[in-house]
Design a binder for these strands. Structure first.
Lengths: 276, 276
DNA sequence: ATAAAGCTTATAGCAACAATAAGGTCAAGT
DNA sequence: ACTTGACCTTATTGTTGCTATAAGCTTTAT
C-alpha cells in the first residue's frame, strides 16, 4: 500500500487523475516513481502532505505557479505578505461584487419600468422624486442634426464617465435637458446629456434634479421627440399649468433593445409644472 | 464621418482594436462594410448602440456568447431570468469570498502562532479557551503503526469533511485525542482525529473542547510525540496535579512546512489538569 | 517619393484544468 | 493461455475574453 497508482491517489484525495497528471507536468507534484517501461506513475502516501498543502494554498486563492515557488523556497515572509495582500484584494472584490449586484437590481427595475410603461402617446401627470445625475455639457445641439450627432455626443459622455471611474452600468438610463429659458419659447437647444445615477457615486461628480410634479408623455421613436414635446407644451397651455423648470428627455431602454442595428429607444418626456 | 475605421471606432468607444476584431470574428459585432480588396473594416457610428449594449450586458456579468444569443433573439423573458439568476449567484460569490477572507485571517493568525511558539521541549501551563472541533472516529490506532497509517486516517478525515461541505481551509490545524480513561494509564489509544474549526461551521457537525488549564509541551517531531507525552505525564505527577480530561495532540503547521517531501509537524501536546 | 501611421491575417499565450481519442498494461477469472 | 474489463499512457483540443507579437499590406501626410 506504499505505492499508489494515479487512480488510488486521485480517489483518496478527491482530485481527478487529470489534475494529478497536470501537476506532474507543471512540476508541482511529481510521483516518487515512474515506471520506465510503462510510464505508469506511482505515488507515496506521504506525498499527500504536499498535495494537502497545494490544495490548502489554492483554497486561499494562491496560483499554482506561486505555490510552486513557495514549496521550493519555504520563504515564510513571502507567504505572509501574500496572504495579507490577498486579504486586501478580497475586500476589493467584495466591494466590486456589491456594485455589480446593485447594477443588476437597477437593470431589473429598469426593465420592469419599461414593461409597465404606458403606450406611446400617453400623457400623464406624475410626482417624481428627487433624482441624481451625472451630466456632460454638450458641444453641439443635436436637435439641429440627426441621430449620428446624438451618438457622437453619447460617446463623449461615455468617455467622460470612464475618465471619472463611473461604471458602464449606469449607461442604460440616459437623458438630456433643455433649460427653462429655452423651453418656454419652444427653442429646442439641449444643454447637457446625462445618466441617472444613484447614491454610490461620489457627491462631487453629480448634480440633482428636484422632486416635483411633471407632465409627461411617452414616446417610442427618436424622430418624434419634438412633435411629442410640442403636444406636451400644448397640453400645458390647455390645462393652464405653468412651466416650472427644465425640460427633460429620459431614455428608458429595454435591455436588449436594438432594431435594425440601431438604438431602439423609449422616451419619457417630462416638464415640471405648477398647477394653479 | 459616417464610415469609421477600426481605429476610430476603437477610440470613441474605449475598446482595443483587437477586441473589435475579436467581436467581428465571433460574430457579435460585424462592421457594416468590409473592403473586398484590402479587407479593411468600416463601422457606422450607429453601431455604437450595439457595442454599448454588449458592454452593458458584459458589465452585468453576461458572457459574450450569451450576449450574442440575446442580441439575436431579443427574448426579454430570457434576459430577466438571467439577471435574477445572476443576482443570486453573486450573493453566493460574496458569501464565498467572505469565507475566504475568514480563512486567510485564520491562516495568518495560525502562522503567527507558529512563529511565536516556544522551542521544542518547552513545558508550559496555559489557560485555553473553549474550542470547536470537527471530529472523525478513527478505525485504527495509529500509535501502533507509523506515519503511513496516520496519513491514511487523515485522508479519511479529509474525505469526511468534504462530504459534509467543510472547507479545505480548516485542514491546517488538526489534532487527535486520547480519552481520559486511557491516558491515566499511559495507554496511547487515539479515539478520534479532528480539525479545529470556528463558529461558521453548522452546529450539528461540531463538538467542543472545554476551556481549562492545560499543561502543555511543544514538540517538533512526529516520532517524539510519545516520549514527550510521557514527560508531560511525569511532570504532572511531580507537580502533584491531577489529570482532568482527554489528552490532546494539536498540530500547528507552518504554512509551507514540508521537509524531504514529508509533513513537517509542530505539535502542542496538551493535558487538562486540576491544581490542588 | 517616402515615411509614419494604420490596417490586415495568423499565431501563441493566459489559468487550471476537463474532455476526448487512440492505444498500451494489469489483475482476475475461466 | 486467454479474455475481459478496469486502469493506465500520451497527445490534442477546448474553455473565456481577450492581449501580444510577427510579417506584411494600405492610406495619409509631407
Amino acid at each position: 500500500m506504499d505505492r499508489l497508482t494515479i487512480g488510488q491517489m486521485s480517489k483518496i484525495n478527491n482530485v481527478s487523475e487529470q489534475t494529478l497528471r497536470y501537476y506532474d507536468k507543471i512540476g508541482i507534484l511529481k510521483p516518487i516513481e515512474i515506471d520506465k517501461f510503462t510510464g505508469y506513475r506511482y505515488y507515496s502516501i506521504k506525498q499527500c502532505a504536499r498535495l494537502d498543502m497545494i490544495q490548502y494554498l489554492k483554497s486561499l486563492g494562491m496560483q499554482l505557479k506561486d505555490i510552486e515557488v513557495q514549496l521550493k523556497t519555504y520563504d515564510t515572509k513571502l507567504i505572509k505578505s501574500f496572504l495579507e495582500e490577498k486579504s486586501r484584494s478580497i475586500d476589493a472584490e467584495i466591494e466590486a461584487l456589491k456594485h455589480q449586484k446593485n447594477a443588476l437590481q437597477r437593470a431589473i427595475s429598469n426593465y420592469e419600468r419599461y414593461e409597465s410603461s404606458p403606450p406611446d402617446g400617453t400623457i400623464t401627470l406624475e410626482y417624481i422624486e428627487k433624482r441624481w445625475i451625472y451630466s456632460y455639457k454638450m458641444s453641439t445641439n443635436f436637435y439641429d442634426f440627426g441621430i449620428e450627432i446624438y451618438e457622437e455626443e453619447l460617446r463623449k459622455l461615455k468617455e467622460d464617465m470612464e475618465r471619472n471611474g463611473l461604471r458602464q452600468t449606469y449607461f442604460c438610463n440616459t437623458g438630456n435637458r433643455v433649460p427653462y429659458e429655452q423651453i418656454i419659447n419652444r427653442d429646442f437647444i439641449s444643454s447637457d446629456l446625462f445618466v441617472f445615477v444613484d447614491e454610490n457615486v461620489p457627491e462631487n461628480l453629480i448634480s440633482t434634479i428636484k422632486a416635483g410634479t411633471y407632465l409627461c408623455i411617452y414616446c417610442s421613436r427618436f424622430e418624434q421627440e419634438i412633435p411629442y414635446a410640442n403636444r406636451l407644451l400644448d397640453e400645458i397651455s390647455d390645462r393652464n399649468y405653468t412651466i416650472a423648470g427644465d425640460y427633460i428627455c429620459e431614455v428608458i431602454t429595454d435591455l436588449p433593445d436594438l432594431m435594425n442595428g440601431e438604438r431602439g429607444m423609449f422616451f419619457k418626456l417630462q416638464i415640471p409644472v405648477r398647477i394653479t
